[in-house]
Design a protein around this nucleic acid. Sequence first.
DNA 1: GCGATCAGGT
DNA 2: CACACCTGATCGC
Length: 559
Amino acid sequence: MSSFAGRMKEYPYISLDRFDRENLHARAYFLSHCHKDHMKGLKGPLLKRKLKFSLTVKLYCSFVTKELLLSNPKYGFWADHIVALELESPTQISLIDEASGEKEEAVVTLLPAGHCPGSVMFLIEGAQGTVLYTGDFRLAEGDASRIEVLHSGSRVKDIQSVYLDSTFYDPRFYQIPSREACLSGIRGLVLDWLSRSTYHVVWLNCKAAYGYEYLFTNLGEEFHTQVHVNSLDMFKKMPEILAHVTTERATQIHACRHPKDEEFMRGNRLPCGSFASDGTPLKIISIKPSTMWFGERTRKTNVIVKTGSSSYRACFSFHSSYAEIRDFLSYLQPINIYPSVVPLGRTHADVTELLKPMCREVISSAVIYRPLGTLKRTRQEPTCHDVDCADWLFESGDMAPVRKRLMKLEATPTTPLGDPVHLLLSLIGCQAPEAFVDEDEKHSAQFPLPLNPISPGHVLSQAKTMLIQDGECQGEILAGIDTGWKESGSHAHQTDPSELSESQVSSDFEVPSTPESHPPGTDELIVLYKRLAAGEQVLGLNPEDRACRTKPGGPSLQD
DNA sequence: GCGATCAGGT
DNA sequence: CACACCTGATCGC
């Protein structure tokens, strides 16, 4: 749950996702999405009074959020004060102090957040620098590079601070199966059940919150039916969702709710009380979407877990995993990161400490001393000082992206070499980590990395440059998003998901895909690794090149 | 009577 | 399996 107090250090005149206390005095308001824990104080009588006498105070949000908000009459008084913005369209706003007339300008841009319908992140650019408030988000690895407005030319914008959804920023939540993997698991379960007879029905045990809609639209589409829900009111202006939901009970897929619905289920009844017309009892299974996570090196197990004779849990996440957040942050390299959520069992200090390695180090001196490996590196550009325990394979900073590329290769069945990380480690004289690190201890264990003539970090930064280079230009950014949330199945049926890379398949809201980078072939890899092991400069690239921050396909296109 | 807050539930 | 929200009790205005 968000514990963000509503204001950012750089722009204290605006309030985001909090509307009580000091936020009552804000010059402008921002609502990232329509979940109650981000709407505290939004229907408060004090705020209502303030708006009555104000001409300049506005609430900025997406069109979908505006629609969802105003579908609840309690927020009706906002109607004339909401400014809905298109995604990825920078908009200049004036922040006016109505008492003094004092005025400050800023440019705000909404970015897709993939958390629920209408959810966005806010990019704010102004005199106090560029800051990103993420709201709640689920982005897949690689998604940040596809968001055009995070770049200027082929470079990532210089971001002062990120106000981060840190819900799963904890190595414990290292990986969460992709949206597509979860969806496909659910699809399989539903198919198996519904195909038995017309008396077989499924109940999707969803919480009272926006965010399951893409599940409904995908299942509705797949099974040529509509999903039974309690109300359609909020979706009046969202034809893509509306097409797949109904208030008619006569359907095999239900997501209806009732205060005592769990009790209903135990009595083999649907929350809506639907029954078969000829008196035959319905055969009901319940599927409860909930988050499942896996450790860094854990083989992902099933995304569906049976929890009873007729009940299942299905993997489903509204938030990015630890690995996804790291990927996001290592791409943006902000100077400051402020967590807005403290994961259970941790303190604010814990999270801040865990986030430090993801912050860009602003260096005055050009020389940095490292405790292990090659001890000296020079770098003009700012760098990540990444010594996070989860990345103990390497002692050096900007390796997070490299590892991901390598892990992607690992997962690529067409790479016949098996595990490139292990291969590389054995070539440079290190033993594979699992040999002496217990699964449970892996995050705290110190990997006894032998000192080596070559810094693995250095080696890998060379390897990385090659591994990530893209052959093709990136997909075009689509503008003017309807829902701020796109259902993968309702995309004019693109490619078979099995043909897509992990990052593409899980990126099923409105962030266009990037053409897959081409993993090097076997021969290429062997040659490369041997040369790396020998300490050679494999590519004639400048080590200072911030390849990890260069938009894939960017330079060749834009420069 | 209304709102805020907390505990306890799913 | 930890998200988001509901209900009910209690307190203060």
